[in-house]
Simulated assay, not measured.
Amino acid sequence: MIELKSPAEIQRMHVAGRFVAEVLSEVGRLADVGVNLLDLEHHARGMIERRGAESCYWDYAPSFGKGPFRNVICLSVNDAVLHGLPHDYTLRDGDVLTADLAVGVDGWVADSARTVIVGTAAEEDLRIVRATEEALEAAIDVARPGNRLGDISAAIGAVARDYGYPVNTEFGGHGIGRTMHEDPHVSNQGRAGRGLKLRPGLTLALEPWFAATTDRIVYDADGWTIRSADGSRTAHSEHTVAITEDAPLVLTRRALEDPAATGGSTRATTSSGPRGERGPGRDG
Protein backbone atom coordinates (compact mmCIF):
# COMPACT_ATOMS: atom_id res chain seq x y z
CA MET A 1 0.00 0.00 0.00
CA ILE A 2 1.27 3.46 -0.90
CA GLU A 3 0.74 6.13 1.74
CA LEU A 4 0.75 9.77 0.68
CA LYS A 5 2.11 12.14 3.31
CA SER A 6 0.66 15.47 4.32
CA PRO A 7 2.84 18.62 4.20
CA ALA A 8 3.18 18.43 7.98
CA GLU A 9 4.31 14.81 7.80
CA ILE A 10 6.83 15.66 5.09
CA GLN A 11 8.26 18.34 7.35
CA ARG A 12 8.68 15.73 10.10
CA MET A 13 10.53 13.53 7.60
CA HIS A 14 12.65 16.55 6.75
CA VAL A 15 13.80 16.71 10.37
CA ALA A 16 15.02 13.12 10.06
CA GLY A 17 16.54 13.92 6.67
CA ARG A 18 18.60 16.81 7.97
CA PHE A 19 19.98 14.58 10.70
CA VAL A 20 20.85 11.81 8.23
CA ALA A 21 22.64 14.41 6.10
CA GLU A 22 24.57 15.62 9.14
CA VAL A 23 25.77 12.11 10.01
CA LEU A 24 26.81 11.31 6.44
CA SER A 25 28.69 14.60 6.19
CA GLU A 26 30.56 13.76 9.38
CA VAL A 27 31.37 10.22 8.23
CA GLY A 28 32.68 11.60 4.94
CA ARG A 29 34.81 14.15 6.80
CA LEU A 30 36.32 11.47 9.04
CA ALA A 31 36.98 8.92 6.30
CA ASP A 32 40.73 9.07 5.81
CA VAL A 33 43.73 6.84 5.25
CA GLY A 34 44.33 4.81 8.42
CA VAL A 35 40.76 5.10 9.76
CA ASN A 36 39.04 1.83 10.64
CA LEU A 37 35.48 1.15 9.45
CA LEU A 38 34.53 0.24 13.01
CA ASP A 39 35.59 3.69 14.17
CA LEU A 40 33.22 5.24 11.62
CA GLU A 41 30.44 2.89 12.77
CA HIS A 42 30.98 3.82 16.41
CA HIS A 43 31.01 7.52 15.59
CA ALA A 44 27.71 7.25 13.71
CA ARG A 45 26.25 5.21 16.57
CA GLY A 46 27.22 7.90 19.06
CA MET A 47 25.59 10.64 16.98
CA ILE A 48 22.37 8.63 16.72
CA GLU A 49 22.30 7.94 20.45
CA ARG A 50 22.95 11.57 21.37
CA ARG A 51 20.16 12.72 19.05
CA GLY A 52 17.71 10.24 20.53
CA ALA A 53 17.10 8.87 17.03
CA GLU A 54 16.53 5.26 16.03
CA SER A 55 18.63 3.27 13.58
CA CYS A 56 16.58 1.55 10.88
CA TYR A 57 19.38 -0.99 10.38
CA TRP A 58 19.80 -2.34 13.89
CA ASP A 59 18.11 -5.75 14.06
CA TYR A 60 16.94 -5.42 10.44
CA ALA A 61 16.40 -8.93 9.09
CA PRO A 62 15.00 -9.02 5.52
CA SER A 63 14.75 -12.20 3.49
CA PHE A 64 17.83 -11.35 1.41
CA GLY A 65 20.14 -10.74 4.39
CA LYS A 66 21.82 -12.99 6.93
CA GLY A 67 20.22 -11.18 9.81
CA PRO A 68 19.83 -9.55 12.10
CA PHE A 69 22.00 -6.62 11.03
CA ARG A 70 23.81 -5.38 14.14
CA ASN A 71 25.20 -2.04 12.99
CA VAL A 72 23.75 1.42 12.44
CA ILE A 73 25.37 2.24 9.10
CA CYS A 74 26.33 0.37 5.94
CA LEU A 75 29.97 0.88 4.92
CA SER A 76 31.01 -0.61 1.57
CA VAL A 77 34.52 -0.41 0.11
CA ASN A 78 35.71 -0.56 -3.52
CA ASP A 79 33.85 -3.40 -5.29
CA ALA A 80 31.34 -3.55 -2.41
CA VAL A 81 28.35 -1.28 -3.02
CA LEU A 82 25.31 -2.21 -0.92
CA HIS A 83 24.66 -3.35 2.66
CA GLY A 84 28.34 -3.36 3.57
CA LEU A 85 28.75 -4.79 7.06
CA PRO A 86 31.18 -2.63 9.07
CA HIS A 87 34.18 -4.74 10.05
CA ASP A 88 37.82 -4.48 11.06
CA TYR A 89 39.21 -2.86 7.92
CA THR A 90 41.56 0.13 7.82
CA LEU A 91 40.99 2.51 4.92
CA ARG A 92 43.80 2.82 2.37
CA ASP A 93 44.81 5.51 -0.06
CA GLY A 94 42.49 5.40 -3.09
CA ASP A 95 39.73 3.35 -1.47
CA VAL A 96 36.19 4.05 -2.63
CA LEU A 97 33.88 4.18 0.40
CA THR A 98 30.08 4.18 0.31
CA ALA A 99 28.20 5.11 3.48
CA ASP A 100 24.45 4.39 3.59
CA LEU A 101 22.28 5.48 6.51
CA ALA A 102 18.59 5.29 7.39
CA VAL A 103 17.37 6.78 10.67
CA GLY A 104 14.03 7.45 12.30
CA VAL A 105 13.33 10.61 14.31
CA ASP A 106 10.05 10.80 16.22
CA GLY A 107 8.51 8.06 14.10
CA TRP A 108 9.54 9.33 10.65
CA VAL A 109 12.38 7.99 8.53
CA ALA A 110 14.90 9.31 6.02
CA ASP A 111 17.49 7.38 4.01
CA SER A 112 20.57 8.57 2.12
CA ALA A 113 23.91 7.34 0.79
CA ARG A 114 27.08 8.90 -0.54
CA THR A 115 30.32 7.61 -2.01
CA VAL A 116 33.65 9.30 -1.27
CA ILE A 117 37.20 8.52 -2.31
CA VAL A 118 39.80 8.27 0.42
CA GLY A 119 43.06 10.11 -0.22
CA THR A 120 44.28 10.02 -3.82
CA ALA A 121 41.43 9.74 -6.30
CA ALA A 122 41.75 7.85 -9.57
CA GLU A 123 39.89 9.47 -12.48
CA GLU A 124 37.93 6.29 -13.23
CA ASP A 125 36.69 6.24 -9.63
CA LEU A 126 35.74 9.92 -9.72
CA ARG A 127 33.88 9.19 -12.94
CA ILE A 128 31.66 6.42 -11.58
CA VAL A 129 30.83 8.41 -8.44
CA ARG A 130 29.97 11.40 -10.61
CA ALA A 131 27.72 9.19 -12.75
CA THR A 132 25.63 8.11 -9.76
CA GLU A 133 25.35 11.70 -8.57
CA GLU A 134 24.21 12.89 -11.99
CA ALA A 135 21.75 10.01 -12.25
CA LEU A 136 20.32 10.92 -8.86
CA GLU A 137 19.87 14.56 -9.85
CA ALA A 138 18.24 13.50 -13.11
CA ALA A 139 15.83 11.29 -11.18
CA ILE A 140 15.02 14.07 -8.73
CA ASP A 141 14.35 16.49 -11.58
CA VAL A 142 11.52 14.35 -12.98
CA ALA A 143 9.99 13.53 -9.57
CA ARG A 144 7.03 15.83 -10.21
CA PRO A 145 3.24 15.46 -10.15
CA GLY A 146 1.85 14.02 -13.39
CA ASN A 147 5.02 12.18 -14.32
CA ARG A 148 5.25 8.44 -13.75
CA LEU A 149 7.53 6.15 -11.82
CA GLY A 150 9.00 4.94 -15.10
CA ASP A 151 10.21 8.48 -15.82
CA ILE A 152 12.40 8.31 -12.71
CA SER A 153 13.77 4.89 -13.64
CA ALA A 154 14.34 5.95 -17.24
CA ALA A 155 16.22 9.08 -16.14
CA ILE A 156 18.62 6.99 -14.05
CA GLY A 157 19.11 4.44 -16.80
CA ALA A 158 19.79 7.14 -19.40
CA VAL A 159 22.68 8.55 -17.39
CA ALA A 160 24.12 5.07 -16.90
CA ARG A 161 23.97 4.47 -20.65
CA ASP A 162 25.62 7.81 -21.37
CA TYR A 163 28.53 6.80 -19.15
CA GLY A 164 28.61 3.25 -20.46
CA TYR A 165 27.77 1.58 -17.13
CA PRO A 166 25.50 -1.49 -16.92
CA VAL A 167 22.53 -1.35 -14.54
CA ASN A 168 21.49 -3.97 -12.00
CA THR A 169 17.74 -4.11 -11.38
CA GLU A 170 17.71 -6.51 -8.42
CA PHE A 171 18.05 -3.66 -5.92
CA GLY A 172 16.84 -0.11 -6.31
CA GLY A 173 14.96 2.72 -4.65
CA HIS A 174 11.78 2.52 -2.64
CA GLY A 175 8.99 4.30 -0.88
CA ILE A 176 9.78 5.59 2.60
CA GLY A 177 8.00 7.28 5.46
CA ARG A 178 7.00 5.65 8.72
CA THR A 179 9.33 2.76 7.88
CA MET A 180 12.50 2.45 5.84
CA HIS A 181 11.06 0.33 3.01
CA GLU A 182 7.58 1.06 1.73
CA ASP A 183 5.91 0.68 -1.65
CA PRO A 184 6.65 1.33 -4.44
CA HIS A 185 9.91 -0.23 -5.62
CA VAL A 186 11.89 2.16 -7.86
CA SER A 187 14.04 0.40 -10.43
CA ASN A 188 17.22 2.06 -11.68
CA GLN A 189 16.17 1.26 -15.24
CA GLY A 190 12.77 1.56 -16.87
CA ARG A 191 10.55 3.03 -19.57
CA ALA A 192 9.39 6.63 -19.49
CA GLY A 193 5.64 7.17 -19.31
CA ARG A 194 4.99 3.83 -17.60
CA GLY A 195 4.03 2.87 -14.09
CA LEU A 196 2.54 4.65 -11.11
CA LYS A 197 1.51 8.28 -11.63
CA LEU A 198 3.42 10.54 -9.27
CA ARG A 199 1.30 12.54 -6.84
CA PRO A 200 2.05 15.17 -4.17
CA GLY A 201 2.77 13.50 -0.85
CA LEU A 202 4.62 10.53 -2.34
CA THR A 203 8.00 10.15 -0.64
CA LEU A 204 10.73 8.08 -2.26
CA ALA A 205 14.30 7.04 -1.57
CA LEU A 206 15.99 7.27 -4.97
CA GLU A 207 19.31 5.43 -5.17
CA PRO A 208 21.23 4.88 -8.38
CA TRP A 209 24.20 2.57 -7.91
CA PHE A 210 26.53 1.30 -10.60
CA ALA A 211 29.43 -1.09 -11.02
CA ALA A 212 31.97 -0.19 -13.66
CA THR A 213 31.80 -3.29 -15.86
CA THR A 214 29.00 -5.62 -14.70
CA ASP A 215 25.36 -5.71 -13.67
CA ARG A 216 25.84 -8.93 -11.70
CA ILE A 217 26.33 -9.10 -7.94
CA VAL A 218 27.73 -11.52 -5.37
CA TYR A 219 27.41 -11.70 -1.59
CA ASP A 220 30.18 -11.88 0.96
CA ALA A 221 30.27 -14.71 3.47
CA ASP A 222 28.79 -12.28 6.03
CA GLY A 223 25.49 -12.65 4.17
CA TRP A 224 25.03 -8.90 3.77
CA THR A 225 27.77 -7.17 1.80
CA ILE A 226 26.97 -7.02 -1.92
CA ARG A 227 29.82 -6.70 -4.43
CA SER A 228 30.19 -6.44 -8.17
CA ALA A 229 30.55 -9.98 -9.52
CA ASP A 230 33.73 -9.15 -11.45
CA GLY A 231 35.44 -7.08 -8.75
CA SER A 232 35.03 -3.77 -10.59
CA ARG A 233 34.69 -0.53 -8.61
CA THR A 234 31.25 0.70 -7.58
CA ALA A 235 29.44 3.82 -6.38
CA HIS A 236 26.06 4.64 -4.85
CA SER A 237 24.20 7.93 -4.35
CA GLU A 238 20.84 8.24 -2.59
CA HIS A 239 18.43 10.89 -1.35
CA THR A 240 15.00 10.85 0.22
CA VAL A 241 12.72 13.00 -1.94
CA ALA A 242 9.17 14.29 -1.44
CA ILE A 243 6.95 15.03 -4.42
CA THR A 244 5.13 18.32 -3.83
CA GLU A 245 2.83 20.55 -5.82
CA ASP A 246 5.89 22.58 -6.77
CA ALA A 247 9.50 21.40 -7.12
CA PRO A 248 10.75 18.08 -5.69
CA LEU A 249 11.86 18.51 -2.08
CA VAL A 250 15.13 16.72 -1.23
CA LEU A 251 14.86 15.86 2.45
CA THR A 252 18.43 14.61 2.90
CA ARG A 253 20.39 17.27 1.01
CA ARG A 254 23.76 17.85 2.68
CA ALA A 255 24.87 21.39 3.45
CA LEU A 256 28.08 21.04 1.43
CA GLU A 257 27.22 19.04 -1.68
CA ASP A 258 29.93 20.81 -3.64
CA PRO A 259 33.66 20.44 -4.48
CA ALA A 260 34.72 21.85 -1.10
CA ALA A 261 34.76 18.53 0.72
CA THR A 262 36.97 18.36 3.78
CA GLY A 263 38.97 15.64 5.45
CA GLY A 264 40.70 12.82 3.66
CA SER A 265 37.91 12.00 1.23
CA THR A 266 37.47 13.40 -2.26
CA ARG A 267 34.12 14.23 -3.81
CA ALA A 268 33.52 13.05 -7.34
CA THR A 269 32.77 16.63 -8.38
CA THR A 270 36.38 17.65 -7.75
CA SER A 271 37.28 16.48 -11.22
CA SER A 272 35.50 16.66 -14.52
CA GLY A 273 35.84 14.25 -17.36
CA PRO A 274 34.05 12.99 -20.43
CA ARG A 275 31.20 10.57 -20.28
CA GLY A 276 31.43 7.27 -22.02
CA GLU A 277 30.12 6.82 -25.50
CA ARG A 278 26.41 6.27 -25.70
CA GLY A 279 26.12 3.05 -26.05
CA PRO A 280 11.94 -7.60 -10.53
CA GLY A 281 13.67 -5.63 -7.94
CA ARG A 282 14.42 -5.38 -4.26
CA ASP A 283 15.03 -2.25 -2.23
CA GLY A 284 18.55 -1.21 -1.41
Rank of each mutant, 00 (worst) to 15 (best):
H87C: 11
A99F: 05
H87T: 13
L82W: 03
G84E: 07
G281L: 09
V81C: 14
A139F: 01
S272M: 14
D125C: 06
L85E: 11
S265R: 00
T132Y: 00
D246W: 09
V15Y: 13
V72T: 05
R199Q: 14
G94F: 03
L97D: 02
V218C: 12
W108E: 00
G231M: 03
A110M: 01
G52A: 03
V23R: 14
E3N: 13
H42Y: 15
I226P: 01
S187P: 06
D230T: 04
G52T: 03
R144F: 08
V142R: 05
T252S: 14
R148E: 13
D59M: 13
E49T: 08
P274I: 10
R70Q: 13
Y165E: 04
I152D: 05
A21K: 06
A247W: 14
T240D: 04
D230Y: 07
F69C: 08
T266P: 06
T169A: 14
A260H: 14
M47A: 04
G223K: 11
S232A: 07
G94P: 03
A255H: 14
V118Y: 00
G173C: 09
P86C: 10
V23E: 10
E26A: 15
L24D: 02
P184I: 03
A268N: 04
I243N: 00
L30G: 05
L149Q: 04
L126T: 00
V103D: 00
G223I: 06
V72D: 03
G281A: 10
L126D: 00
R267N: 09
L37A: 03
R92F: 10
T270Q: 15
W108M: 07
